[in-house]
């Protein structure tokens, strides 16, 4: 386990900034003097309290399975891929939001894209190909994706047209159970 290097930090922040605003709050010190840091173990990036990260140094790399919140994985080509486990952080600071109706929640959780017919409402002024967090109508975050059309264009779209390309959904906790935290 080690802290991130400069390029790695940049890549991680870059990806997070696609989905979330106000990232400064992620690294601001807490009231008890502690703060959150980013740690890398087995090419996975974890967002964890510094006190816990320090404690985890006593565990060997191989023995350490996970700590804090797993944000995603750094690929061998140097890119960063967000995992569904980062959803609580993204949902808190989401830049753009899409709410899906009851009938659209299940298809989304089974891994399909969001079509226009399933959209309950969406945030205004959302450009195309920008990250957005998908919520149910009860404001429960279900996953995140990338907008296929801007809000204005999506209004003219037919009901079967794709509005959001899925990137991750909560169904992955079951579907990718074996590979989500290790391997």
């Amino acid at each position: 386990m080690r802290p991130l290097t400069e390029p790695e930090t940049k890549v991680v922040f870059d990806k997070l900034a696609n989905y979330a605003t106000d990232l400064k709050t992620l690294i601001t010190p807490l009231e008890d003097g502690d703060r959150y840091v980013f740690r890398l173990n087995h090419s996975r990036v974890y967002y964890v309290r510094l006190s816990i990260a320090n404690m985890a140094t006593s565990i060997t790399r191989d023995a350490l399975l996970s700590l804090g919140t797993c944000l995603g994985k750094l690929t061998k080509t140097g890119k960063f891929r967000l995992h569904i486990t980062a959803l609580p952080i993204l949902a808190e600071h989401a830049r753009h939001k899409v709410w899906v109706k009851e009938n659209g929640a299940q298809p989304f959780l089974y891994g399909s894209n969001v079509v226009k017919a399933h959209v309950g409402r969406w945030s205004e002024d959302c450009p195309e190909h920008s990250g957005c967090v998908v919520y149910s109508m009860a404001d429960v975050p279900l996953g995140f994706g990338v907008t296929a059309r801007s809000t204005a264009e999506a209004r003219r779209l037919d009901p079967t047209g794709i509005v959001v390309f899925r990137q991750a959904d909560c169904g992955e906790y079951l579907r990718d159970e074996d590979t989500l935290f290790a391997g």
Binding site: R2, P3, L4, T5, T9, F13, L23, K24, I27, P29
Partner: peptide, 12 residues
């Protein structure tokens, strides 16, 4: 490594 708050804030 980038572990101090200042450098992280700058990158951010």
């Amino acid at each position: 490594f980038v572990d101090d708050r200042e450098s992280m804030t700058t990158i951010l």
